[in-house]
Design a protein around this nucleic acid. Sequence first.
DNA 1: TGCAAATGTGAGGATTACTCATGTTCGAAA
DNA 2: TTTCGAACATGAGTAATCCTCACATTTGCA
Lengths: 213, 213
Amino acid sequence: MEGSSVAGSQDGQIASPRRAPSQQRSRERVERMLAAASALIAEQGSDAMRMGEVAERAGVSIGSLYQFFPDKRAIIWALAERYTAESQACIAAALGEVSDAEGLRRAFSELVDIYYGLFLAEPVMRDIWSGTQADKALRELELADSRANAEFLTAVLKQLRPAADPAALETTALLIWQMGEATMRLAISVGRKEGDDLVAAYKRMALRELVGE
Amino acid sequence: MEGSSVAGSQDGQIASPRRAPSQQRSRERVERMLAAASALIAEQGSDAMRMGEVAERAGVSIGSLYQFFPDKRAIIWALAERYTAESQACIAAALGEVSDAEGLRRAFSELVDIYYGLFLAEPVMRDIWSGTQADKALRELELADSRANAEFLTAVLKQLRPAADPAALETTALLIWQMGEATMRLAISVGRKEGDDLVAAYKRMALRELVGE
DNA sequence: TGCAAATGTGAGGATTACTCATGTTCGAAA
DNA sequence: TTTCGAACATGAGTAATCCTCACATTTGCA
């Protein structure tokens, strides 16, 4: 953890750290910069976070900010790294000692709850992983589309299972749809070969849920 | 489809259309603007797409561009709308006449393939729904994290199912993990109540896959 | 033909990420 | 203690880019 939080990105690539704080003084200042950025993200989202405002709130000059973080993404990523480390530890703890199916069931169930709790409790984490970063308005429209698309599925499910709770069917349909989109996004970023496998696996899982075993 | 593609967003809200093209001349120009934007997004991604370049390539002035699209997001969204309409139609066609479980199985399976094909074939669609828009470098780091997190799950699965194909287990673990993150992102945007239901439904589905029925 | 509305223009305003020339402080070697 | 290079700090200025607006032109129509 020694000044390793200055990794940044540039032009689609990860840039080397501009400078690692080696003196006590600068370490404290970098801490203040991160705290300021964190607060601003929590208040307004990372998109609306202005570098000048971060510097001002941290009580440093804009130049100092760029001395340690090569660009805006770097400071956001440095924050993300902290949460990542935190959640990695939590995953390792939950799944580390599983040895049978029942243990997995318990551990996984607990893990999801904890993770969900983290998402709900940490506005910064929420923002970084899913917030304004990707355009709030567009996200809402995407959600509306997903709902519209899922409705076709809902209709079919309601027809096939008239006895089931309609609200539950809607939830299932939306979830399956959203998972499908997530799978395809993932499939694209991992490349064709592995992507095809992922889509096939998704199809299996979704069908199991939709039409039973 | 009559000049309905000028909806845009501003400051987190959907803005009313600036102006709908009513004359033949302007309809053609708007068409050219959209084509130029589409080409640029396909070449460089929507992030790198510059409004000035769109105008230049469409052979219109920057002012004309802003006459019909209130801001940059509006033109991106107008393009997204086209693909949305296209895929909606395709969903309706696939799921419209399903009446039994076997029909659903076939229709859903086919639908996933078509949708996946659309994603693969349309660079613009790919970009808009998952491309540079959300920061390529960050996405790759997220993917690396997801893989790292999924590894814990993979390890457990390999232990519980020593006979299974390791590569398939890795795929399953990555998929389940990614779906979990997608579910939580979704859960956050739909609000607490429905979000809880979605997470619970995800847990059920994931566990079914992980530890069987 | 005349005129109001629709359309078209592009220089320039406004914002904001980021740079750089210059000054200051620190740590340690002499 | 002095000295000196490296680390640290500064903030006015640069560059890039979204978007506006005052004004010119074209179109449809009474």
